[in-house]
Amino acid sequence: MEASGREAVFGAKEFRYELADLNLTRDDVVEEMGYTCEEGNERGYLCDLAEEAAELAKSNVELRGGFVVVEPDRIDIQKGSIQIDDVVFDSQPIITARLRRAEGLALFAATAGDGLEKISKELMSGDDMLKGYVIDAYASAAVEAVADKLEAELERIVEPRGWNVTNRYSPGYCNWSVAEQSKLFSFLPEAFLGITLTATSLMRPIKSVSGVIGVGENVKRQDYQCAVCDMRNCYRRRVVQSKEK
């Protein structure tokens, strides 16, 4: 805690969650696949499979998340790039435009572990690709829900200062190269949350996410700006489109 009694903003923090903490519904998972669980839906079987995935998840996920909030005097945000200490991120203008008023940056990671990934792969290489795919989608939704929880934790910690948070932005999205994930992890503790990076910057477990969130008095959350981004197959675009239908 800081001298004022407030929780310290800067530095590293880790959290563990139970599945029940995530409020993840079967609708969230089915939406991830492009459909809904509305009454009379002819794809109701997907909703049933999402419920089966939720049951499996109870004993096969390890939900962990955390972040390191970097102090303002270590950060220099320019159009298209972010410098922290002597490391320069080529974060692209879409992202830096939304972070440039930030007073601190939270570098975060979250994971759902590799339990569901293993089950999904086994099913997909066998005779039940659909169930395997639904489990994969469940794990993706779970790790995004962990990242949502992290955003809420961060918001809680910075709120006493009168600070807000931005959306989260990840390497691999908004034209920010996934190769920069290794730079991001250089600011996180060794083997943070048990996540490792392959030579091609792929996180293991695969169901993990990482990225940056801006904090400060003059930043805010915005709708994801699909119109300014040319990534046609982006997860966020699919979710937005699915909700618009």
Partner: peptide, 11 residues
Amino acid sequence: VFVPDVLIAAK
């Protein structure tokens, strides 16, 4: 349609 429909058709 999305991936689940392709998977079930393939089955």
